[in-house]
Simulated assay, not measured.
Amino acid sequence: MQKNDPRREAALRIVETSRLLRNIVEQRLKPYGMTRAHLATLSRLDCQDGLAQHEVADALEVQPIAMVRLVDQLSAEGLVERRNDPADRRLNRLFITDAGRERLAGLESFKAEIGRALFEGIDEAALLQMLTTLNQLHTNIKTMQVAEAATTKLRKSGTSS
């Protein structure tokens, strides 16, 4: 009988856990009239107000067209506003409104409860080790993406063998 590769098992568990977490967060945000993408956008702007719309899309790893719809929704609710970039009128800069900050503040108990439930039974040392491991995985994946992008660029330019 062949022993399972722990790297493969870990990768599969990360994917499965991520899917489960996304689903539970989406489900629990519904009563607040929010989605994960709404929350992520407001949170990003709360930390870095005035980002260009494409910068928020890149940071959240969302397609630009999806970001447009997301910002349209948040703007319609008065949670975010678009402003023309003074140096480049083709760019929209995004700003969280006071109503957006209030909505985020109203989600603090939600975030605290998700955190408590999610990490129940995991002590701080294990959590810190997990963060170290996840940070290394993140770095490895980003390195892989850069290498793949470079390979694709070479292939498209016709300079590879």
Rank of each mutant, 00 (worst) to 15 (best):
E16D: 11
G78T: 04
N23D: 15
M34I: 02
L127K: 09
K111D: 05
R19Y: 06
T139F: 13
H54K: 15
I24K: 08
R8T: 14
A76N: 08
I141W: 06
F119R: 05
R83I: 07
R89A: 14
A87T: 15
E81G: 04
K111R: 12
A147N: 05
L154C: 11
L51E: 02
N84H: 15
V80F: 02
V146R: 02
E108P: 00
A37Y: 04
G115A: 05
H138G: 14
V71W: 00
T151L: 15
T152G: 01
L107I: 04
R90G: 11
I141C: 10
R82Q: 02
V146Y: 03
K3Y: 11
E102W: 13
G50S: 05
E77W: 05
E120Q: 08
S75G: 08
V68P: 00
D88V: 01
G33D: 04
D49I: 02
E102L: 15
V68Y: 06
L107E: 04
E120V: 08
S161P: 14
A11M: 08
A105P: 00
E77A: 11
A57K: 01
A125F: 10
D5G: 06
G158A: 03
A117M: 10
R36C: 07
L131I: 09
R82F: 03
V80D: 00
R90I: 07
L42F: 08
T35W: 03
A57V: 00
A125W: 07
I24Y: 11
E26C: 05
D98A: 03
T143E: 08
E9D: 15
S18A: 14
Q63T: 05
T133F: 10
L70I: 04
Q136Y: 08
M1S: 13
G100N: 01
T35Q: 03
A99Q: 03
L74N: 01
R69Y: 13
V15I: 13
S157G: 06
S109T: 14
